[in-house]
Amino acid sequence: MSMIEFHDVEKYYGKFHALKNINLTIDRGEVVTIIGPSGSGKSTLLRTINGLERITSGQLIVNDFDLADKNTDMNRIRKNVGMVFQHFNLYANKTVLDNITLGPTMVLKRPKAEVEDSARELLKMVGLEDQAAKYPSALSGGQKQRVAIARSLAMNPRAILFDEPTSALDPEMIGDVLDVMQTIAKQGMTMVVVTHEMGFARRVGDRIVFMADGQILEDESDVAGFFDHPKEPRAQEFISKILNH
């Protein structure tokens, strides 16, 4: 059963052709990593899935809703599809706990006490139960990103999109965040992850998508095979650069 379907999707920014003929189907419970050089359209692709970017043409179906249809309520998509950003985007004016509870109380209209209980559970899961009353500015980057993941999980989404979740972190913080992501993946969450963490892609990913110049060049279920023998020359070049670094 598919969660996300791209059919012949094109995306232009003015004259710039950002996404070219995208065809991609992601099933429920699948963990897909998207890699590729910067400017290849990975983040744009990800942002179209929860409507932060609109597609120019083609068909994009997320959780059975057609995103190309103007009548589709984007907020209903976003309720069900969480997003974790490179720069966390935690609400600077709210405490860690309020960051997590805002969505469930305002959007899902769940009772505050119940939401707070589950928020504390989520904080425990990401190892930050003692940080609930702090403001985001008092946290380290790794802590912020774990809060952002908890915020996303609090909405009980059908899928979570990760946009380079570890790129803005100091190296020693990356491990904690990836561990949390792995835990979520094991629980069966549908995940689309744009990342440069090849180890994570290899260990956790069910599938790997390689993008360059707005196109999907490889879409491979044999993740280990992709890393050992990439078919496309662009992919070979990219892998060798990353691994030799």
Partner: peptide, 27 residues
């Protein structure tokens, strides 16, 4: 107020008005 604040709020399903009132205006 950083663009990311609005995106962060919209990404959990808050409407534009809710995001303005809850996140953007206070900052």
């Amino acid at each position: 107020v950083a663009v990311g604040q609005m995106e962060g709020a919209r990404s959990v399903g808050l409407t534009y008005t809710q995001a303005m009132v809850q996140i953007i205006f206070p900052q």
